[in-house]
Design a protein around this nucleic acid. Structure first.
Lengths: 288, 288
DNA sequence: TATGTATTGGAATTATTATTTCATATTCCC
DNA sequence: GGGAATATGAAATAATAATTCCAATACATA
């Protein structure tokens, strides 16, 4: 007597993500037609959720029995229970994006557990991304990228909360082989570092209220040397905005006293990669 | 000779909103049981989309035949075609968000301008947040927070792409007055730093493929000292997962070769603030 | 190349589910 | 209050759909 599949196999996937992972995992070892229906299922999950075994099989170009074998191979006892997973997915995802955000936030504010905290940060990040996506000024983006693309060295200036963004910019610039210098205060050598900057360079400065005094001071010093500044900050009253040649207003939502960085990150990456592209293009043009 | 209903009535509702309006409009004039199922349908559209005539009728407290009469009264030729409208709604609703994302991404990939690059990063961040929001394992979160809350010092270990997250964690832990130590390689003192760690401490380690060898090496060294590790990484094959007491799988979407950090950031913040809360709570309890 | 094993296609079977029917109850009007 | 029209419940029936089965084929192994 042999154990049946349900006992033998690891537990049957109950949610779509697990199912997806399982399929992707076994993809290589699946027979041809089963693989065919597997690919179809991941590509057209809605069809699986709503179709009948026959209609799905027809669309995927296999026999209904193959569809059932596929389900069984995954540990389900038939097509119907496989379908449940696809339906559940729709149920969970069905609420519109904004509704989901609201729900998340409500849960985060009302709820007690740590999951609620997590939801709060996700909601804050989503909101911020949404906002910046609506409000970003395209002209500013173009101006900033042009300015930065001309720079010999790009200095990156940010402290405290904004510092992670600065490190990411520095990392990305490095990968793109763009000369850059992160101005950090570890050894207190910032003043000397700044003294190297010339008007042929440029600065990306990031600071949010309450503005780190060091950032402001260094931004002032460097702008007095005639080095153009691109600033990311949170309002037109920001001292950074005064020194900047181009500046972006980014409103980050906050949760539990910590503001999201997602919008700032997205903008920072767009600037960085934008500069990378611009340089490649003009480099090519110059050669041609 | 009288015209039949289909000819008499205005066209049957083809989309959910029209259907909803029609029902609301006729509500007053509907017979009791039909009104009952009508109310149920508007309150539980998902059930109508997925259920069988019998199951829906049971939930709504009517007979299956009533359900069919309801459909016919609205001009459909049976329950099945009524159900189509409810299914279509789910399909569209579900795709609206994804489509928006896809559109963003398509614009980003196809489009030329720098705005497209920005959109790409926003899309990547949104996707990542979405994913993690669905897949995060709550138990892991609780375990990780408990583990970290017990630690005397929390060490934060991450390089390169993950380094920004580490700096943000360090910043947040600092603000919450939680003792922590960022393991950075500036002065090459990492080995010495690690030597201070004891099993009473804990580590948050972050690394994504391709895993920075230094991160892996240091994680191994520190785990051999018996210091528990909470890891954030991208797959169960990650070397980090092996050393970790608790680990999270975070799938970040990428754009233009740079992966988003938004999901990792959200998780990192949840861990940090979660630890802060837990400590406050248990501190209070101990005093009481 | 022969032999056993795994895979596939297609029809037969079984099950589930929608729909119809009809008897009964309720409502509304004269 | 009586009768017609409408509404409802419950079970019978028809339809649709899932599953199983078996023969045919492809594939791997010796």
């Amino acid at each position: 007597m042999s154990l049946d599949r349900a006992t033998m196999d690891e537990r049957v996937p109950r949610d779509f993500e697990t199912l997806r992972a399982t399929i992707l995992d076994r993809r290589e070892s699946l027979p041809r037609r089963i693989a065919q229906i597997a690919a179809y299922a991941l590509d057209n999950p809605d069809d699986i959720a709503f179709g009948t075994a026959a209609s799905i099989a027809a669309s995927a170009g296999v026999q209904p029995s193959t569809l059932i074998r596929f389900a069984q191979q995954l540990g389900f006892d038939g097509f119907t229970s496989l379908q449940q997973v696809f339906r559940e997915r729709l149920r969970e995802r069905n609420s519109s994006y904004d509704e989901r955000l609201l729900a998340l936030r409500a849960k985060a504010e009302g709820g007690a557990g740590h999951r609620a905290i997590f939801d709060g940060f996700v909601a804050a990040a989503s909101t911020s991304l949404n906002d910046i996506s609506r409000t970003l000024d395209e002209t500013h983006l173009e101006d900033a990228i042009s300015l930065l693309a001309r720079a010999e060295t790009i200095y990156v200036l940010a402290k405290r909360r904004s510092y992670p963004v600065a490190t990411y910019i520095a990392y990305a610039l490095g990968k793109l082989k763009i000369r850059n210098q992160l101005i950090e205060s570890a050894a207190g050598l910032n003043a000397e570092m700044i003294a190297f900057a010339t008007p042929a360079d440029a600065v990306i400065a990031i600071s949010f209220s309450p503005y780190a005094p060091a950032t402001i001071e260094e931004a002032r010093a460097i702008s007095e040397r005639g080095v153009p500044i691109v600033a990311i900050t949170d309002s037109s009253f920001s001292p950074l905005a005064q020194f900047a040649r181009v500046w972006f207003e980014v409103a980050e939502a906050d949760f539990a006293g910590f503001r999201s960085l997602s919008a700032t990150m997205a903008l920072a990456m767009a600037l960085t990669v934008g500069v990378g592209e611009k340089r490649r293009d003009s480099g090519r043009r110059r050669k041609a």
